[in-house]
Design a protein around this nucleic acid. Structure first.
Lengths: 138, 138
DNA sequence: ATGCAATTGCAAATCATTTTCAACAAGAGC
DNA sequence: GCTCTTGTTGAAAATGATTTGCAATTGCAT
């Protein structure tokens, strides 16, 4: 499900100009299955087109975020990492040794969260659940 | 429960010198029941002793964090906020309108987290659960 | 092809936080 | 109480991630 988003189309539809560098960044992004940070995207894009600047990577990320096309995650002690927004909601388990990000979902946790917030008299707008751990031995 | 931690005693026992400015910062901190950020602590401490610098606030926070006396929370889009580490583990609900931080706990959520991590082959070292919401109307 | 507003790269600016460094002050020992 | 040693301080500069100002450039509608 939810494969290779066509960011170019979305932006174009929003009246945004698709420049050469933007096209490269968007391609890099839709070819990514991990959770790269701006520098990582910049490196990948640079290899394809050296004229891409880190500034434009940031500008494009902000643009896509505003359009709701990607999500920005600020995991502890590190730069923001980005991912497609098209997939279903999920939380993250971060491998403390490798930095790898594993996605997971739990309807039960989601339900409990809503329950807790309600008890406190609140409605959840969004939440952040991150598990930091290491591979269990054995 | 868990009231007015005596940071001074802890630091002194660790061989740390209690300077005039440090004493002020520690007092401000143990008099706080909220989740102030470095600038907030600096402002409160400054009023008591103008010789306290923001630098020293940061240095003292880092020190207390290393000694395990306080916890640092980086809520989204803002500076780190600190709180006593003495109380039991809890998660946070952040009021999007006021910035107020409400603490809560849920053994069920904790258990579910461990369960999920285990299924993925991981052991949780720590986690972060933050609910961002607004007061429910009615 | 033309024109103009959107976009670019670079450098400088921000923001939170840390580090450098010379001046200063805890507090152990006398 | 006085010294001495070494930790600590404030101010300013450095960091790291990200944003912004600006003059030059370039999509792309016409």
């Amino acid at each position: 499900m939810s494969e290779r988003p066509n960011y170019e189309q979305v932006l174009r539809a929003a009246g945004v100009r698709i420049t050469r560098q933007r096209a490269v960044i968007l391609r890099v992004l839709s070819d990514s299955d991990d959770h790269p940070d701006a520098m990582g995207i910049f490196r990948r894009a640079s290899r394809i087109d050296p004229s891409v600047s880190l500034t434009t990577v940031y500008r494009t990320m902000k643009l896509l975020e505003e359009k709701g096309e990607i999500h920005r995650h600020a995991f502890e002690g590190g730069p923001s990492r980005f991912e497609h927004a098209d997939s279903d909601h999920h939380d993250h388990l971060i491998d403390l040794d490798s930095g790898e990000v594993i996605e997971f979902t739990s309807d039960r946790i989601e339900a409990l969260q809503r329950e807790i917030a309600a008890e406190l008299g609140y409605e959840i707008v969004h939440h952040r659940l991150e598990l930091y751990g290491r591979k269990a031995k054995g």
